[in-house]
Amino acid sequence: MGINFYKRLFLLPGLLLLIAIIIFPLLFSIRVSFSSWNVSRSGLDFVGGANWARMWSDADFWGAMLRLLNFGVVTTSIQYILGFMLAHYVWQGIKSGRLFRLIWLVPLMTTPSIMAIVWRSIFREDIGAANGLLKSVGLSTIGWSTEIVPAMFTIYVAEIWQWTPFMFLFLLAGLLILPKEPFLAAEIDGSSPTRTFWRITLPLMAPISIGAILIRLIESSKIFDSIFVLTSAGPGNATETPTYFLWKRSLTEFQIAYGATLALTYLIVMIIVLTIVAKVLTYISRPRGW
C-alpha cells in the first residue's frame, strides 16, 4: 500500500466524521438565513437578502461585536500572561508541584453556567461574600453589578478564574516538549535566567502560544454564562456580547432566520479576524537573527 493510502488513513476518518456532523447544521443555517422563519411562521420560504440587509444596519449587533475587543482580547491577554507564569513555574519546578498543578486545574473543571451562579452568590450586593468581607473589615460596600466598572470587573474575575487553567495546561504541554539543546547551550554560555527566558523559552514557545491565544480568542468571544447570570447584559446594555445577542434573538424570541444570519455574519467576521490575528502574531514572533 502506497504512502497516499496511509496519508488518507490518518486524516480522513476524523475529517469526514466532522464534516458529516456539521454539514447539515451549516447548510441549514445558510438556507434559513434567506427565509423569514420567526416565532409565528416556521418554514423555509425565500425572502432574498432581507435578513442580511437588516443585519448590516443593526447597530445593537455591531455594538455587541465591538465589545469583544474588550471581553475577548483583554481577558485572553490576561489569561495568557498568568497562564504562562504558572506554567513556567511548574516547568522550572516548584515544591509540591503536582499538588499545585491539580489545584490550579480545578476551576477549569467546574461547569461555567453553574459556577456563574456561585459567582452571583459572591457578588450579590446584599447577601454576597464580597460585600460581606468588605463590611467585616469596615470598608464601604460596592455595587458590583450595577456600576459599569465593578460589573466588568466581576465578569473579568469569573472568566480569568475559570479559563486561566486552560492557558496554563495548554502552555505547560508546550513547555514539556521543548527540545533540551538550546537550554544546555545557554547554560554553557552562562546566560542569565531572564535572558534565557526572553531569548530562548519565549521564541521557542511562539507556535504553541499562538495556538493557545487563538483558541482562547475563539472561546472567550463566546462568553455568555457569566454575563447572563451576573449582569443580564447590564447596566443598560454595557455588557451585551454577540453570543448573548444571538441567544436572545434565536432562542428567546425565535427569530430563527435573523438569528442564523447574525450567526453566519459572526462566523465570517471571526474567520477574517482570526486569520489576521494569526498572521500578525506569527510576524511579531518570527525568529530574529541573534
Partner: peptide
C-alpha cells in the same frame, strides 16, 4: 432600592 437592586431579578 437596596444596593444592587438595579440588578435584581
Amino acid at each position: 432600592v437596596p444596593q444592587g437592586g438595579q440588578n435584581f431579578g
